[in-house]
């Protein structure tokens, strides 16, 4: 017979774990609901089409910040995805044991470096010698942040491809390079694309490394050599500003950024569960 005390402890503790789950999930729903309510209602078409107004004036939008974020992400992808992807191919297909261990360990190490430290790195590398803030340095900072995630996700998805597929291709006389390009990579395609999407979603919300690399700009930023506005940085500067209208716009920008990040996340995971289920 169970004593009453043990029964009570059992029931109480198990329900407490349910409460914990409820709190964690509730936080997400609260964040979504609150941003929908505050950001969604204050979102206007001006937000997407107009430049910011001079300090203190109400109205205006963040068109330049949207374009700035897009440019930074493009630059980051050009740096982060090729290096990360090919590095992942090396680890999955060619790597010996000890050197691969060193590469994996370093990758994890780089992945754990706080984003603001990566910002300092891009600053000392580009901003300091050039003497001015630039889109280029911001893109480099985000690109460096993308590399470790790209390398680990592409390695994982390439490894998930069954060895029998590789053996089949090689048995037909294909060289190793040909096997990788025509058999292994196409088989892992869904996973690789998912990895890239999640990676982009992560760096799209990064603010800290941009504060002193791409800085900010209240106007359009042509080319790659000038400072540029970016959506996350605008949220930060507008949120801590004293103006009511800027705070309203910070909510709109937060709403747009969150929707963007969550949409990419949900799409990527759905793609993976639908197409990649055979490989997992």
């Amino acid at each position: 017979m169970l004593s009453l005390r043990r029964k009570v402890v059992n029931a109480v503790m198990l329900s407490l774990t349910g409460v914990c789950t409820f709190l964690a999930v509730g936080t997400l729903l609260f964040i979504l609901g609150y941003l929908f309510f505050h950001g969604g209602t204050s979102l206007t078409t001006d937000f997407f089409t107009k430049l910011p107004t001079p300090v203190g004036e109400s109205g205006g939008g963040m068109a330049n910040a949207l374009l700035g974020s897009a440019k930074l992400l493009l630059l980051a992808s050009c740096i982060g995805i090729p290096i990360g992807f090919l590095g992942g191919v090396y680890l999955a297909e060619f790597g010996g044991s000890s050197f691969s261990f060193v590469v994996r360990y370093t990758t994890d190490l780089l992945n754990g470096v706080p984003s603001i430290v990566i910002g300092i790195f891009a600053y000392t590398l580009i901003v300091l010698p050039q003497g001015h803030f630039s889109t280029l340095s911001g893109g480099l900072a985000l690109g460096v942040m993308m590399i470790p995630i790209a390398i680990r996700s592409s390695e994982d998805f390439l490894r998930a491809v069954p060895v029998s597929l590789r053996e089949g291709a090689m048995a037909l006389g294909a060289s190793k390079a040909k096997t990788i390009v025509t058999v292994v990579i196409p088989a892992a395609k869904a996973g690789l694309i998912t990895g890239i999407m999640l990676n982009l979603a992560r760096v799209a919300g990064e603010t800290a490394p941009l504060l002193f690399t791409s800085f900010s700009n209240r106007f359009w930023s042509p080319g790659w050599e000038q400072p540029t506005a970016a959506l996350p940085v605008m949220i930060y500067t507008y949120a801590i500003s004293p103006y009511a209208d800027w705070k309203r716009q910070a909510w709109s920008a937060g709403f747009v950024l969150l929707m963007l990040v969550l949409t990419i996340n949900i799409c990527a995971r759905m793609l993976l569960s639908k197409r990649g289920s055979a490989l997992r």
Binding site: P82, I83, V89, Y90, V103, L110, V117, T124, L125, I151
Partner: peptide
């Protein structure tokens, strides 16, 4: 033969990770 080109290219990318990390520590 193609295999070794692929090997050298991917190895270079893997080495880039080490180089970036080393450079990061050096710059700081």
């Amino acid at each position: 033969s193609g295999d070794d080109i692929a090997y050298v290219i991917t190895l270079t990318c893997a080495l880039t990770i080490l180089a970036i990390t080393a450079l990061l520590v050096f710059e700081l």
